[in-house]
């Protein structure tokens, strides 16, 4: 029997990735408009989920702030969209979110467990209600118009951010900083005494993950053309990335990617097929996934794989 070596496996994986990339780059040329829009949503959720995992995966700090960082990006796009060219707007959206993350991080990263969770979620609601009040009482508006660009442009921009996020996450995981983050999650005190600058690592990674969320928000705003605080700071966007990451499994980088892709597709499918029951079914699937997939889809598949592989070995 031919046993695939790790080198061989690597080449297969690279090949698959390359083909996937080509399909994704070329799909706006032949795919229907609907597919392009769906893929954009999928990319957005992969970006949110992977960037959530970059920080919360190894460190174990469960952040419910994605909606805040995303929303800041959305608003950056709305406020600056008519002033700067789009790439600059996206960059600024990301940077604004990073700045917010640095402040929040410096304030809160000594909070552990449920307190950190509550603080980050409070942040989303605070921004939402503050901007709502601001728009009604100070500027006298509700919502804003965002300069639009074509679906294809949005698609490619999101794809670009997606590729950068995945590359960043991959490189970070393999680097000494990825190791340091993991050590922080396992025992913060020991990590500090091994020379890891715990605070700096946590804040910078939190800011890095916020950057991508903000960039994703800045891009998505251009697709929505009209935004208001309830769209920009939708609390659901804080929970979904966490669920998607858990659904996929946070142990491997492709876990959150697969989780986000499947979940987003599922949501879209349910909304179109069962518009009246979709939340019910979706909620049920969430509960089911938490109950029966403790290590995520990837963890379960690996287990199954091992069992099958183990059985084969026993046969031979």
């Amino acid at each position: 029997m031919h046993i695939p070596t790790s080198n061989y496996k690597k080449r297969v994986a690279l090949g698959v990735l390359f083909i996937l990339l080509i399909v994704m780059v070329t799909s706006p040329l032949y795919a229907p408009r609907y597919t392009v829009i769906l893929l954009t949503s999928i990319f957005m959720f992969i970006v949110l989920t992977v960037s959530w995992t970059v920080f919360s995966g190894p460190t174990g700090y469960v952040s419910l702030a994605p909606a805040a960082f995303f929303g800041v990006g959305v608003y950056a796009s709305a406020l600056l969209g008519f002033v700067f060219p789009l790439p600059v707007v996206i960059l600024l959206g990301g940077i604004s979110s990073s700045c917010l993350a640095v402040i929040v991080g410096a304030l809160t990263l000594r909070l552990r467990g449920i307190y950190f969770v509550m603080f980050t979620f409070g942040l989303v609601e605070l921004l939402l209600h503050f901007i709502l009040w601001w728009e009604v009482n100070i500027t006298g508006t509700t919502g804003r118009v965002v300069p639009t660009v074509g679906n294809t442009t949005v698609y490619y921009l999101m794809l670009g951010v997606l590729v950068i996020v995945i590359l960043t996450a991959y490189l970070l995981n393999r680097s000494r900083y990825g190791l340091a983050l993991q050590s922080i999650g396992e025992c913060e005190e020991a990590a500090a005494h091994t020379g890891v600058h715990v605070t700096a690592m946590k804040i910078s990674t939190f800011a890095l993950s916020a950057f991508f969320m903000g960039a994703a928000g800045a891009i998505m705003a251009t697709r929505w053309t009209y935004i208001d605080p309830r769209i920009a700071f939708n609390p659901v966007l804080s929970f979904l990335p966490v669920l998607m990451a858990i659904f996929g499994g946070t142990g491997q980088l492709y876990g959150p990617v697969i989780g986000a892709a499947l979940f987003t597709y599922l949501e879209e499918f349910l909304i179109t097929r069962f518009p009246y029951y979709y939340m019910l079914i979706f909620g049920f699937i969430m509960v089911f996934a938490i109950l029966y997939l403790p290590e995520g889809l990837v963890g379960m598949i690996q287990k199954l794989w091992k069992r099958i592989g183990g059985a084969k070995h026993a046969d031979s």
Binding site: F239, V242, L243, M279, F282, G283, F284, M286, V287
Partner: peptide
């Protein structure tokens, strides 16, 4: 907490129905 979020979806949907 995450399971509760799923429940939130389900209960809301049932109420709307």
């Amino acid at each position: 907490m995450l399971a509760c979020f799923g429940l939130l979806f389900m209960i809301q949907n049932i109420a709307i129905l």
